[in-house]
Amino acid sequence: MAAVQTRSERALNRLAIAAVLVITLLFLAPIYWITSTAFKPRNLATTIPPTVVFEPEISPFVKLFTKRSQLRTAPEPEDYAAAPWWERLVFDGGEKVVRSGRGEVQLSGYPNRFMNSLIVAITSTVLAVSMGTFTAYGFSRFKMKGEADLLFFILSTRMLPPVVVAIPMFLMYRAVGLNDTHWGLIILYTAFNLSFSVWLMKGFIDEIPKEYEEAALVDGYTRLQAFFKIVLPEAATGIAATAVFCFITAWNEYAFALIMTNRRAQTAPPFIPSQVGSGLPDWTVIAAGTFLFLLPVAIFTFLLRNHLLRGMSFGAIRK
């Protein structure tokens, strides 16, 4: 029996769709505002009423990557004429790009922090996902005593508040010289993501029929060969989804990075807020830094959209 909609039901449905659209726009508004501020000239970033229509500029990104100093007077015409297009954008904002004695452009702290974020997030993801996949297979295929307790133990390590773990880790790292190093953060993020990776991968591997490997064993494969040649290819989608989740968690992490790093190995999340001093910050530059930092995650979210539910529930809810 097909549900016949009455007129009032149709009206209600339309109202619900309108409400959904309004809610979606409200949720996207802050992200839109970050994006638009990242392309604004500085004087339009903090106007009332807010500037919505403007000619987009690339200058916030130039400023984001370069070290600059205030100009007291207008630049010499010949300096201005000799400057490349991007340097003129900085001149136009009443600042100049700082150059070394040999004329090399000095970079700001941002590109370095961005690279640190990439190094730490990628390495810890590779470690957490590979160890997690092996362990998940072990739990999925072999019986053992106290399996539920071990799995609870693994999950509980993920639930520890970062600040609680950070206090002893800080002392231990200080003793062995791992403070403010990439490896220090990589180890912490691997440990943090490992439990998640085990739980999620166990769900994916549980779904691969045991018969596949058994057939391979009959055909003369060893258990290890069956794992590498049969199970891993079958689990590829799950591995990719788990990797993206681990990457995003490591990429976004703030508390450990704040406590364990200060300069050499600092990642972007503690760096970007430190750029807002007590004075009037240049919000266009902060927005540009934020925009670039959020971009990979936004792209990954779209790629991951069919696995979000599963990842967010530690593999408990499948779709």
Binding site: F27, I31, W33, N252, V276, A287, T290, F293, L294, V297
Partner: peptide, 17 residues
């Protein structure tokens, strides 16, 4: 998917904004 975007972003960085 669009509605899910905020929770994937960095709390510290978006929070700052």
């Amino acid at each position: 998917t669009l509605l899910l975007l905020p929770m994937m972003l960095s709390m510290a960085v978006v929070g700052l904004f």
